[in-house]
Amino acid sequence: SPAPALAPGPVQASPSLSSSPTTLPPFFMRGSIIQLADGELKRVEDLKTEDFIQSAEISSELKIDSSTVERIDTGQTPNAVIIQFGVGEHKAQVCVEVLLEYPFFVFGQGWSSCCPDRTTQLLELSCAKLCVGDVCVSLTLRSLR
């Protein structure tokens, strides 16, 4: 089931990092097989913006949100950062604490992280630098107004 959503206010750990931002999920490793909503299989490094948009269009439960990076601060955990996003059309402010190398998918650009060299070193996933102003792909439930 999709990971729980984050709420605004106090900094929350990213749901994809379970309870603490100290681990990277296995599916970011280069070569990982990803299944799109139409059943097509692609490698994580080959994914394009359209793959997420089309998969969300097919999904009856999920919808794509645009989340703009507003701030990037040093995290409370070593090797972590706190990223403040403006989420969705209302630019709701949400903060997440993630590892420096945690990749986000930027519209029209692909995988990006706060420390691309570290991402490439650990995951063999080529990565751009995540910057303030980048618009990332995120998800929301269609049932949420």
């Binding site: 999709p2 990971a3 729980p4 959503a5 984050l6 709420a7 605004p8 990213s14 749901p15 994809s16 999920p25 296995p26 599916f27 970011f28 990982s32 097989i33 990803i34 299944q35 799109l36 909503a37 299989l41 994580v44 994914l47 793959d51 997420f52 998969s55 999904s59 999920l62 949100d65 989340s67 996003f85 989420v87 969705g88 209302h90 709701a92 949400v94 997440v96 986000f104 998918f105 990332c136 792909v137 995120s138 998800l139 929301t140 439930l141 949420l144």
Partner: peptide, 25 residues
Amino acid sequence: NVEPRSVPVFPWHSLVPFLAPTQSD
């Protein structure tokens, strides 16, 4: 030659986070 048996397949939506606040605005 040995065929790989189980290659994990991950759903597309596990790659991107849910960031939208869940409380009512």
